[in-house]
Amino acid sequence: MSGRSERTKDTAEPPGRAGRTGPVDASTQVFVTHRNLLFTVAYEMLGSAADAEDVLQETWLRWVRVDLATVREQRSYLVRIVTRQALDRLRALGRRKETYVGPWLPEPLLTTPDVAEDVELADSVSMAMLLVLETLTPTERAVFVLREVFDVDYEEIAEAVGKSPAAVRQIAYRARSHVAARRPRGEVSPAETRAALEAFQSAVETGDLQRLIDILAPDVIALSDGGGIRHALLRPVVGADKVARLLAAGWWKRDAERSVEAVQINGGPGLLVRVGGKIDGVVAVRVENSRITGAYHVRNPEKLSRVERATAVSR
């Protein structure tokens, strides 16, 4: 499984959007206005930018057939369409993940510094949170994302997921409790994050085992995703000593061909690894109490198209 579906269209951009400066019709303008929001909803539900783009294309095709005069709340209407399409795709993704080779990680996004400044948005698109959301059922995930991240009314969520408002409230409570028990805790200042990433980057570039052990939390977890295409860990590695030895072995060690660049990945700290000038992988890290608690290494080349230029996400 590649995590990327076959598409008949290259983009979810509506007609008149890409590369054009002429006037656009009302439907196109509304869609473009909310596009970043819709992408973020779909991405948080799916953990895949490629599938989120497919959902946007499907949403657009349905949206252009709608009579705007009959739509009272355009944003809500679009969110409802994108949620339904994402739910259908999420259920299909679950079946595809069953045959995935090794750990499955979300498709990483290169994000701009302003995303990190919105603490709630950054947390919602982080690798750590997306992995927690993977443990919810499709409906729980949709309800949690819409309610907790985008503050959508229960009545609107009910229409989007095909449940009663009362049922949605129960699902929201259950999902919120589930996530609270598993999500990373504690806010980290930008200065603390930068210091931890710089120390981590220096240690992995030099292969300094002791420096790695010092910057890693005792219960740190390392996951890597090669998708059966590139070499990667087939199971999680847990513990500072084991993870440090893995990193010191040279996967990200700097040499004449390899470079490591600090970047923003999914609203948080990360490293972009190039070999011979070409992107070889990306490492997103989770920082808590000045130490690295999670390292998420994506090498599957079919998941790396969104780390070459920044992707806009919004609430």
Rank of each mutant, 00 (worst) to 15 (best):
A52I: 07
S202V: 03
V71R: 07
G22V: 06
P106L: 08
A166H: 09
G162C: 05
E98C: 07
A244N: 06
V283N: 05
W63V: 09
R235G: 00
S27V: 11
S177F: 02
E198S: 13
D54P: 00
A232V: 05
K278Q: 14
D255R: 11
E198D: 13
I279V: 15
N300E: 02
R141E: 01
R7E: 02
S76L: 11
H297Q: 09
S189C: 04
A222D: 00
P218S: 06
E58D: 15
L37K: 14
T59H: 06
E117N: 09
S224D: 04
V79C: 04
A18V: 12
V143A: 02
A262T: 12
T33V: 03
P218I: 08
T111M: 06
G47A: 08
P138A: 09
P138D: 06
E156F: 07
D214Q: 12
T40L: 10
A232T: 04
D114Y: 07
S2T: 15
Y154V: 15
L68G: 08
R65E: 12
A222Y: 09
Q264N: 13
G294E: 02
E13R: 15
P106Q: 05
L223F: 08
D153V: 10
A175C: 03
R315N: 11
P236T: 03
A160K: 05
V30C: 05
G267S: 02
A284S: 15
I265F: 04
G3S: 12
T206V: 12
L38F: 10
Q74M: 01
G19K: 07
R183D: 05
D153R: 15
A196Y: 05
G19F: 13
T59Q: 06
E53M: 06
A12I: 04
P14C: 01
V24T: 14
T33C: 02
V125Y: 02
N300Y: 04
I292D: 01
V273E: 09
A167C: 01
L38V: 12
L146F: 03
F200E: 01
V179T: 11
K253E: 11
E187C: 07
A203R: 04
F150H: 14
K303D: 10
V125D: 01
A232N: 03
Y173C: 00
P138R: 09
A86S: 14
S290V: 11
E187Q: 14
L271A: 06
H231K: 12
D25C: 12
V237H: 00
E140N: 04
A191N: 08
A248T: 09
R141K: 15
Q201V: 13
Q264W: 11
T70N: 10
A284M: 09
V115Y: 08
L37E: 11
L90Y: 03
V145L: 07
G186P: 09
V168W: 06
V307M: 06
I215K: 01
P113M: 09
R299L: 11
Q29G: 15
A116E: 13
L121R: 14
M127Q: 08
R35L: 12
G94N: 14
A49G: 14
V282T: 10
E117V: 13
G270A: 10
G276E: 09
A240M: 01
E120Q: 15
T28Y: 07
S124C: 08
L61P: 02
L233G: 01
V125G: 02
V71S: 07
P269S: 14
